[in-house]
Simulated assay, not measured.
Amino acid sequence: MNDGTKHKRGIDEGSDFFEEFNAFSARLRQKILSLRKEKKLTQEQMEAFELTLRQFQRIESGETTNPTLANLFKIAKALGISPSQLLDI
């Protein structure tokens, strides 16, 4: 049902899950950054995997706290791991 209010993607600060979600998001960002550096990939090289530079920068910096499943899938493939391995944090 659409009540006319705009809902942001993610978990609201008032949610019981907010702190846990933020911690999960931070661990995921750190894992992406660590694996990218381990693979010696630059943020610019991630564009070859159908992610724009800006999309990837926003995910890695935490500006985007709720990346889409499609983008997580692309990141996993770019890092040479499965999506389930990426999310195993």
Rank of each mutant, 00 (worst) to 15 (best):
G4I: 03
I89H: 11
E13F: 09
T5L: 13
E19D: 15
Q55A: 14
F18G: 04
L69C: 08
N66R: 08
A70E: 12
E60W: 02
I32D: 01
E20N: 04
I75L: 09
E50A: 15
L51G: 08
D3H: 07
Q55C: 06
P67Q: 07
T64W: 00
A48W: 01
I81F: 06
R58D: 12
L86C: 09
E63M: 06
L72V: 04
K6L: 12
I32V: 15
R9Y: 09
A70T: 13
I75Y: 01
G10R: 05
N66T: 13
E13I: 11
F24L: 11
F49D: 00
D12M: 09
F21Q: 05
P83E: 06
A23E: 15
R36A: 04
K8E: 14
E50D: 15
K39C: 03
T65E: 12
F18A: 14
N22T: 07
N2P: 02
A48P: 00
S84H: 13
A78I: 05
G4N: 06
G4T: 04
K31F: 09
L53H: 13
T5M: 08
A23I: 14
L69P: 02
A26V: 13
Q43G: 12
E19C: 05
K39L: 01
Q55S: 14
S34F: 11
H7E: 12
L41Q: 10
H7R: 14
T42M: 03
K77A: 15
N2A: 06
F73Q: 06
A23F: 09
G14H: 10
E20F: 05
D12L: 11
E13W: 04
R27D: 14
I89K: 01
Q43K: 13
E60V: 02
D16F: 11
A78Y: 02
R36Q: 05
A26W: 01
E60D: 07
Q45K: 14
P83N: 08
K6M: 14
F17Y: 13
Q43A: 08
T5E: 14
Q43P: 07
T52C: 08
D12Q: 12
M46A: 05
K39N: 13
G14L: 09
F17H: 12
K39Q: 12
L51F: 07
G10Y: 02
I75K: 00
E63F: 03
F73L: 07
E50C: 11
F21T: 07
D16G: 14
E19M: 10
T42S: 15
Q43M: 12
R27G: 09
I81C: 02
R58V: 00
F49T: 01
E20H: 03
I89D: 07
R58A: 06
A48M: 06
S15C: 06
Q57I: 05
K37P: 00
Q45M: 08
A76K: 02
A26M: 10
